[in-house]
Design a protein around this nucleic acid. Structure first.
Lengths: 262, 262
DNA sequence: ACTTGACCTTGTCGTAGCGTCAACGTGTCC
DNA sequence: GGACACGTTGACGCTACGACAAGGTCAAGT
């Protein structure tokens, strides 16, 4: 038998056979005078045994070990381990399909993007035409949706809910507009302080206490600008370098006010 | 944000981030004076979006295409396709686990090797101490178990059943012994013809007709030695070069006799 | 001033299981 | 003698990074 016959007999390519030789999975047979490999039935038996195990999902290394260990108890152990491995794979694939189904249900309603269903609603409600700040918040929320743990995620959604409720939406849009207006303003502009006060007034008391507690626990680079971040807003300026000084000042003031209330 | 912060924020390694840059999955951000990459929140949003899709099992190429196609209908198609792909994977893994379970049940009874359950029984019954020919037949059957389609496989098992039935086993062992005896014999030895006749007598009529029909349809290199294979037993000598001339002559005669009967 | 340590940079090799060339020799058939 | 189907070795490609190497940068401690 030459390599092509062996390969078609076992249902593999000749490349596969040579690959197995290279890995010492299949012993190199004798060569004919012209250099061709000459196989016997024994080789076909070994090859099909290898294939059988490979098709079960075993790695070629494992197969080599098992066959080298000359049939027996070792095989059972490896097969059991393999079964456990396959079970894990099934679970992860199942989990993926579940997440996929959730995503598909969402994109079915609105072909937005890849976020969780409840967050998607907030993002839709928060889409304000032409406001750079609304877009910023949407970015922030989209990010928090995936990086924060579920408890914090719910907190963030609540944080923005006042801006998305139908009766409050108009007021929310007005706030975004006032922020956008400060693009070219001076940090000492009188509108800065009043806007900060209006923004701070938006947060219910119990949310403020939870928020302040969370902030103290947050890692430094995720902490919004407060008086402690001495350079005047580390977080906001690194995350959004394009903000004007007046705009960052608004947020600094808001944080100070919230700190005092919490 | 520097690369380490971005990476921990998204829950990946810095290597992964740079890899995504290399693949144009994530745009290269501006560099600081020292050459460090300086990221913004926008980048974190993109990165988490990529990760979200990657964790669903999409390839990075697909993700790039989807994100490039700027959100929308394309995403749905790809997700549906992905779901179908995952479903296929689940099926194949399920099939693997089924085969594994069958194998485990078999090795539970007898730690033989990797064959189907019914074949395993034949192989056990066929194990004759010290007979080279019994081993050959075991090899042959093990091979046929995996390469032949189920119908032929059953045929092969039936072919050997006369040798494995308890009441006939002794006669089978005797036949193997008589074959083994011919190792150093001359092809013209009188024992050759009588052994061939005894062997041929073992096959029931209906099996002979089926066998002969099958042989005509078989590809050339799988066809056992007959008078048509003019060089005196192509199949047997290539598969088992260590056979003596007397032994191959036995099989040639058997095939001739069967041909006449069929 | 020096060292440590934690970052950052680019570049290269390795992974599993082959597919897919390339560049070449062999053997058979018309 | 040319086509064609086979065989040979060798090397690169693929996925999604991990794990080095061999440096440069920066803040803190001694």
């Amino acid at each position: 038998m030459r390599i092509g016959e062996l390969a078609t007999l076992a249902g593999v390519s000749t490349r596969t056979v040579r690959h197995y030789h290279h890995l010492n999975l299949l012993p190199e047979p004798e060569r004919l005078a012209n250099g061709y490999r000459e196989y016997r039935l024994r080789d076909a038996v070994v090859l099909t045994r290898v294939r059988r195990l490979a098709e079960l999902g075993m790695s070629l290394d494992e197969i080599r070990d098992v066959l080298a260990d000359d049939q027996g108890r070792e095989l059972r152990e490896v097969l059991l381990e393999l079964d456990a491995d396959l079970a894990r794979q099934q679970e992860t694939i199942g989990a993926r399909r579940n997440r996929l189904a959730a995503l598909l249900a969402e994109t079915d309603l609105h072909p937005d993007s890849t976020v969780s269903p409840d967050m998607a609603k907030v993002l839709r409600d928060l889409s304000v035409e032409g406001s750079k700040f609304a877009e910023m918040d949407r970015e922030l929320l989209a990010l928090m949706d995936t990086v924060a743990d579920p408890a914090d995620r719910a907190g963030f959604i609540d944080l923005f809910r006042p801006l998305t409720e139908p009766e409050a939406a108009a007021r929310g849009h007005a706030l975004y507009a006032r922020l956008d207006e400060l693009t070219d303003a001076d940090p000492g502009d009188p509108r800065v302080a009043t806007l900060a006060a209006d923004l701070a007034a938006h947060f219910p008391d119990e949310m403020v206490t939870a928020l302040v507690a969370n902030l103290d626990a947050a890692p430094d680079h995720l902490r919004p600008p407060t008086t402690e971040n001495a350079d005047g807003g580390h977080w906001l300026t690194t995350m959004y370098p394009e903000l004007s000084a007046a705009q960052t000042e608004v947020f600094r003031l808001v944080m100070v006010m919230l700190k005092e209330r919490g």
